[in-house]
Design a protein around this nucleic acid. Structure first.
Lengths: 115, 115
DNA sequence: CGCGGTATTAAGCGTTGCTAGGTACCGGTA
DNA sequence: TACCGGTACCTAGCAACGCTTAATACCGCG
């Protein structure tokens, strides 16, 4: 992934993970794999784990330790009420930004009224 | 602006400014004012100037000092060839990310094939 | 003369994603 | 038994970005 995408993920990756958790609970390793499958090819594992720690500390998710048959126990995260609020805010912010940026793309040269 | 927007601007603000410069050359103070008019209400002035310094150092813009009748001389920035390339890359990255995120919004529960 | 608008710059901070490395559990194989 | 690879998680240190705050400088107006 170019560093352009890296920078753009700042501020959106959290929303992405929250959106994933909104559909079903999941653990870090699973989320990373899922992300890779979905085209976010080079998101580092460490990044996902660090993010999960952050959202847990902010109280956006609930955590449950579940034993695994194939390795160490999994930390299964599920979105709680606070997390759902945060996710809603994320979508609002995202659509605001996306709207403004698309405007920027389509507007041609009529931006003189602001200068 | 909430810090959600602040984080989301990381990686996109540069593209936004480049897109503005693609339409016409401008100086920092002007760009800031223009941004405010467009709804990016709370983008700090310092942020824009710092960003302009960065894109100048990376050779994406040409600079010309133009005397002002109302204050100190203006540094007028204009997008050059490298800058236009970078802008194209920005749009590509943006649309890739936006596409994936919109998918995330619309997909319902059929993400089992990846797990 | 001071104030406010114009215009730019710089230092220091917090947040974020990445790199790189380590820990731990388990089954299969030599 | 010993080792390796897949599963699963964590941490320290780094770089990039936007924000805060403050300073500098030019100008016209009261």
């Amino acid at each position: 992934m170019g560093n352009q995408m890296t920078e753009m993920l700042k501020g959106t990756l959290e929303g992405i993970v929250l959106a994933i958790l909104a559909r079903r609970s999941a653990y870090g390793y699973e989320i990373t794999a899922w992300l890779r499958d979905r085209g976010f090819s080079d998101i580092a594992e460490g990044t996902v784990y660090a993010l999960l720690v952050r959202v847990e500390q902010r109280g956006l998710v609930d955590v449950e330790k579940v034993p695994s048959e194939k390795g160490p126990p999994r930390k299964v995260y599920s979105l709680n009420a606070r997390g759902r609020e945060q996710l809603a805010e994320f979508w609002a912010t995202w659509h605001t930004l996306a709207g403004r940026i698309e405007q920027l793309r389509h507007t041609d040269n009529q931006h003189d009224e602001g200068a």
